[in-house]
Design a protein around this nucleic acid. Sequence first.
DNA 1: CTGAAAGCGCTAACAG
DNA 2: CTGTTAGCGCTTTCAG
Lengths: 295, 295
Amino acid sequence: MKAAARELGYKKNQAAVELVKKQSNVIAAVVSSVKTNFAGQIIDGIQSEASKHGYNLIVVYSNSASAEEQRKALLTVIERPVMGILLLSIALSDDNLKMLKESDIPYCFLSMGFDDDRPFVSSDDMEIGYEATKFLIDKGHRKIGLAAIDKYPYTGRLRLAGYSKALNEANIVPDNSWIQSGDYSYTAGESAMKAYGKDTDLTGIVAASDMAAIGALNEARNLGLRVPDDLSIISIDGTEMCQIVQPQLTSVSQDFYKMGVVGVQRIEESVVNKTASKDHQQLIPVHIYERDSTK
Amino acid sequence: MKAAARELGYKKNQAAVELVKKQSNVIAAVVSSVKTNFAGQIIDGIQSEASKHGYNLIVVYSNSASAEEQRKALLTVIERPVMGILLLSIALSDDNLKMLKESDIPYCFLSMGFDDDRPFVSSDDMEIGYEATKFLIDKGHRKIGLAAIDKYPYTGRLRLAGYSKALNEANIVPDNSWIQSGDYSYTAGESAMKAYGKDTDLTGIVAASDMAAIGALNEARNLGLRVPDDLSIISIDGTEMCQIVQPQLTSVSQDFYKMGVVGVQRIEESVVNKTASKDHQQLIPVHIYERDSTK
DNA sequence: CTGAAAGCGCTAACAG
DNA sequence: CTGTTAGCGCTTTCAG
């Protein structure tokens, strides 16, 4: 009979199954719709690990900026029985975070760290700032800018701290003008480079993201500055963008794929342990790839 | 009491609601996990139109290549009561298409056209091939290559036909070597350019996608060819990639955002009309943006 | 081992 | 207008 039913194109109604079983095998990912070109790599990692365990993945997009959009996206997944929620580079408003916590669904933030005790998997942003800056220092640079970084949220603050630490260790005192804050975007990279100007003292720049690095690179070219001969640029993220641009960008690369994998493992742990899995904050190592934008 | 419940963090169980209502307000998008950098634009369009109508969007990723992966992704959405399914640049296997049809859930393919009668929204690929080629001809080019295009599936075949038509109208007889087939990727663009070689007769190239165009552009540079002075390149797609690369790429731009919007409207029609909405195949106009890679 | 019955959380229909 | 009841499609339990 089952076989016959299957022949006739019978499909299980998972809504009914989940209703009675009170559990589901789907993991939900909430992604900020901001143009993050690394989200795909994280999703690949999630997908791969999820499928290894027989889980299904659904993703919903949410505009990071609007709390109302966030709320709708969150409700879409909370109001149906998902086994866990992964949040990709999204900073929840207080209300929405509260709602998430109260849902009793295991969750984990990905690619973003936080001050409080919520679970997350991300790179060590302090290390990123430090390694990028130190790389340039080791190449002999002394005047090094930090471009397009958001100074206040957790991520940017840590990267700035790492940058300052590396400079400090080398007895370099940064000028205020060396740090050009921004929102990690192409335009922010462009603006930072414009602010430094054609006659800048800087010989090296740490860019907050690949897109910011490309913005800075293109603007440098407009200004008549040659990369890497006049100016070295090191990028943070290490997506494919680094390799399609000329010159190819040296980068501090984050392992986004692994973040996805580990995120799924976190969810699984929370499910089997029935615990909220607090204070699970895991840092994924980064790696520097030297390409052609530094010397 | 409702208010009190809400205070206490009560959340509706949508699984139960949908079970009894036998309808849902979620639209599902199935996306090929192949690195299509325009999927984001389509999803933005879907999201915006869906939210206008109070629908929620969930997306599932599926590797276009594997029928089994496709099947899992499709089942994830078919087995729960979604109101409609949008398929983004994904070519379903026969079995999976059959399963989709039998599910009786309204569906529509996006950014890909087909020979048969299934509903889709895409650009007119014949027009794309024709306009791109004609643009170069009007600039005075006579020897024009077609790079990284997949010759057999519907999309590539139509673009090739458009290319041939434009050439034919100008009484140009293409040499076989002008057409370098590929899979729309960066590497395919690179390989095509390598095949043309440093001493090519070609003065213009139509690239199958933005990534292919960038591959060709970078390889041309390696070969010592200057773009656009020695070689003009026109790209197909028109994503942001065209503007971050140097020189910026002239492109035949597709309106991906609109495809998403129209796709949601198709689903809505099917739902209110209770009809399968067959033979609804809609073409979205394209537009040429002249930038710096052609002359 | 097979078959009937209970019930998951909700809405719709109906009765009071 | 509020309160009760049936039942959506399944799994699980319990009886036969």
